[in-house]
């Protein structure tokens, strides 16, 4: 069974008529890193939001199976507890809520949904401190409110920290490379690579080939006008980098 199987998915913004996803088909296997590339407005972010269950979007047709179960009827928190994680392109600030409070609340909320007891605080502290160190996240950052006053790079590293704590089955990284300098990009990529495992899948959404130099994809999909129009190996990303999207998009249309 595939980890993620999206069949003929169509979706639109709830308040508008225009379809953004138009019969999208996509399969991600366990252990696979699938890159999704595409021009602006092709539906990359919409795909990540629809999978994560954002309310502003309405699924008009199709299904998305995570481990064989259609997740499109589930609330966002239920999807999260089933192992779906979205690293946000623009992580959200929550003033007054300490990082540790947030991380613990999230971890234990998922554990409880999966029939586990809350993680004891000492174990939790050890876990967070360990992961934070690997990602170069300072104690000071852990003491601040969630994403408040963080630089772009800090926010992205923080997303990876959350992913490392929550240990999802499927992680969707939505333009995680945007706004990162090369050093930060390396740290983030190392964090992701450290989590690659035969049971876990990644969907890496990006505009640029650059990120894929550091996170080597197994497969590259090209998204245009709400559908996957081409699939290939890592060399496809290099080809796109060299020739731009116009060529492929033109042929598909």
């Amino acid at each position: 069974m595939s980890l993620l199987e999206i069949k003929n998915l169509t979706a639109k913004l709830a308040e508008e008529d225009k379809q953004i996803l138009n019969g999208l088909n996509l399969t991600v296997e366990k252990g696979q890193v699938a890159a999704i590339m595409g021009p602006n407005g092709s539906g990359k972010s919409t795909l990540s939001y629809v999978l994560a269950g954002r309310e502003d979007y309405e699924v008009t047709n199709g299904e998305a199976l995570l481990d064989g179960e259609n997740i499109l009827e589930l609330s966002p928190d239920e999807r999260a507890a089933k192992g779906l994680f979205l690293a946000f392109q623009y992580p959200i600030e929550i003033p007054g809520v300490g990082q540790m409070t947030f991380l613990k609340a999230a971890l234990n909320a998922q554990r409880r949904k999966n029939g586990l007891d809350d993680m004891p605080t000492p174990e939790f502290m050890k876990l967070v401190n360990g992961r934070a160190k690997e990602l170069g996240i300072s104690q000071d950052m852990l003491r601040r409110s969630v994403n408040v006053g963080f630089s772009g790079g800090e926010k992205k590293r923080n997303e990876i920290l959350q992913m490392a704590l929550l240990q999802p089955k499927l992680a969707i990284l939505d333009e995680t490379d945007s706004g990162l300098d090369i050093d930060a990009l390396k740290i983030v990529a190392d964090g992701v690579n450290a989590m690659r495992s035969p049971d876990r899948g990644f969907v890496v959404i990006t505009h640029y080939q650059r990120l894929l130099d550091y996170i080597k994809p197994d497969v590259v999909h090209v998204l245009s006008a709400g559908r996957i129009i081409k699939t290939g190996g890592p060399e496809l990303a290099l080809e796109l980098e060299a020739k731009g999207y116009a060529d492929i998009v033109g042929k598909a249309a």
Partner: peptide, 13 residues
């Protein structure tokens, strides 16, 4: 809604 979605994506009801 962004804050709500962010929290819920991490597993909170």
């Amino acid at each position: 809604e962004d804050q709500m979605f962010y929290c819920m994506q991490r597993g909170l009801t």
